[in-house]
Design a binder for these strands. Structure first.
Lengths: 341, 341
DNA sequence: CTGAAAGCGCTTACAG
DNA sequence: CTGAAAGCGCTTACAG
């Protein structure tokens, strides 16, 4: 399959490849007639410049690398991250950037993400990850490669995240207003920024209502997985004084927690109210439909693309950190109770 | 960020770039000592060849394009296709191929998928789509670009799909064994291969048990969406003689159908049994958990990668068509009834 | 076993 | 307004 090149167009029109290139790239000083003739030939021949050759000379590939570091082992199927990637993709494509997935291998050789990014010559990367102590992620953040990182706070690169802390507070507001006073928290692993912030919001909320913090009511659910939530809830269920409500730091974890409650012969929300975080697709379909904090994955992806593109276009400036608003979505997993304590 | 090139390695080791290149690419006739020296320098300098420059000379980019043509508007978040892509990605990466998303735009210019594929110089494409009458998809299939297409039957390219027809038969077997005789079908749009085959399986199943085909029991649910299933079920609910069971040609459609049934004040499975197709993640979590036909998305993706890679490596040979087995997953949306008719 | 040279398909100073 | 030439970073005949 021999593709037509700029040489073919030059030969056909009688102009040099230089002029053809200029006509194609909208250089101002090309004679209108010349340009017209060239563009017609281009149209007729179905010619389109080869991005690889162009990249080699311009040092711009108009590709973004996407780097996934997720602990669920689901890759692209991740219920929250996939929405972020989709939003990022839509926006990036609008600016002519295509997405290319980057892993830690090049062929069969194990390399760093940075090596892979350089190998492919991407203009920037989006890193979508939960664990910001992963040394590979740290290297990424500190590298000179333009990047935007999701769910992390850092001043060494562009970052974007939801207002996780405030989300936690909203949960407590909601539960408190329903009469709950014994509120537990299944936390995300504390080396994740989101886990930390949601926990912080939980504590701020409790303080606001002078509820006091009961350390046995805070249990670590790990990396936001169903199993982690299941196990953490089982810990809580061993307590003498059960909580009446649990704020779970992620929706999948919340589903696991609900499962544990059902297994123990208790009901949601009749015996224990549950609130999640994320508002993934499943949250509205499960029974009971999950009350949760909605993050706008699509917007996060789009804003991430904007950050990255702006960063690339304004080399001089520093880094941006963007925080997105969150919203409480009331569904069926929380219930009003009479205030006991 | 100036990257090290093959010239830097050549200068450092005192050999020519030719020799460095050969050492790197495991050419047989390079002196062992030379090779060792070069590889050490490469290691020390953190050098890795630039894929763009390499692609320009070799005409191989070691990238695959992924083309999504889906009618739900969810893109990468598609509950079934995302699993196929993930499997494809895993396998492709093992062979050194990276994935790049292709759309119908290059920058802001509307182009064909083929133009975009050529622009990026991908070595092959996977097309994941449901509608095989889309002219863009037809062009793709007929183009000389190596490709593998999901959910389509064709002898003009490599294709892979589940045994949709047999899946339909399995559904009827199951429903018949539960005592159902009045079985309706919400079909996928008939310009989709999967829709056609599942319908065929439905009919074969009915014939097998001499149930006869009632045309008013077959209603078109469109492109497998929730809304389509919802509307189609409403059509069925207008019938004088309601079916006792409905085989719905996709899980999302089935959820829509269940919603319609609930809205009508009926229950699943007590009044009407429902069987879906796909076994997407949600199917097991929804209430009632959905009885459905499982397709192995991961395997489909992996086999698709194998087909594409084999095709590229053995230019002479023709095209392959692979059919994957399916499996009935019994859950809570189907129920035994007493045989009436 | 090693190197000089050509070439992949573009873009971009530079010159006119 | 247009073209010849160099160069991007590699690989691969070809020659020795």
């Amino acid at each position: 399959m021999k593709l037509t090149t700029i040489y073919d167009v030059a030969k056909k029109t009688g102009f040099s490849i230089t002029t053809v290139s200029r006509a194609l790239n909208n250089y101002p000083d090309v004679n209108e007639k010349t340009k017209k003739k060239i563009l017609e030939a281009v149209e007729e021949m179905g010619y389109f410049p080869n991005s690889i050759a162009r990249s080699l000379t311009t040092k711009k590939s108009f590709t973004f690398g996407v780097i996934f570091v997720e602990n669920l082992g689901v890759g692209i199927k991740h219920p929250f991250f996939s929405g972020v990637i989709e939003g990022f993709k839509i926006r990036a494509e609008k600016f002519g950037y295509d997405l290319i997935f980057l892993n830690r291998y090049i062929g069969n050789e194990e390399k760093s993400y940075i090596d892979h990014a350089n190998y492919r010559g991407v203009d920037g990367i989006i890193v979508v990850c939960s664990n910001y102590e992963d040394p590979e992620v740290v290297k990424l953040i500190e590298s000179p490669l333009p990047s935007v990182v999701i769910d992390i706070h850092s001043n060494k690169t562009n970052v974007i995240y939801s207002n996780n802390c405030y989300g936690g507070e909203l949960v407590i507001d909601h539960l408190y207003s329903l009469g709950h006073r014994k509120i537990a928290h299944i936390a995300g692993f504390d080396d994740t920024y989101t886990g930390q912030e949601r926990l912080k919001g939980y504590k701020l909320g409790l303080e606001k209502y002078s509820l006091g913090i009961n350390e046995s009511y805070i249990v670590n659910g790990g990396y936001f997985s169903y199993e982690g939530g299941y196990q953490a809830m089982n810990e809580l269920l061993k307590l003498e004084e059960l909580p009446t409500a649990v704020f779970v730091s992620g929706d999948s974890m919340a589903f696991g927690a609900i499962k544990a409650i059902k297994n123990a012969g208790l009901r949601v929300p009749d015996d224990i109210s549950i609130v999640g975080f994320d508002d993934i697709e499943l949250a509205q379909h499960i029974t009971p439909a999950l009350t949760t904090i909605r993050q706008d994955a699509d917007l996060m992806g789009k804003k991430a693309a904007d950050l990255l593109i702006n960063h690339i276009n304004n080399k001089e400036e520093g880094f941006s950190a963007v925080m997105l608003p969150v919203e409480l979505i009331k569904r069926e997993s929380t219930k009003k109770i009479s205030v006991t304590q």
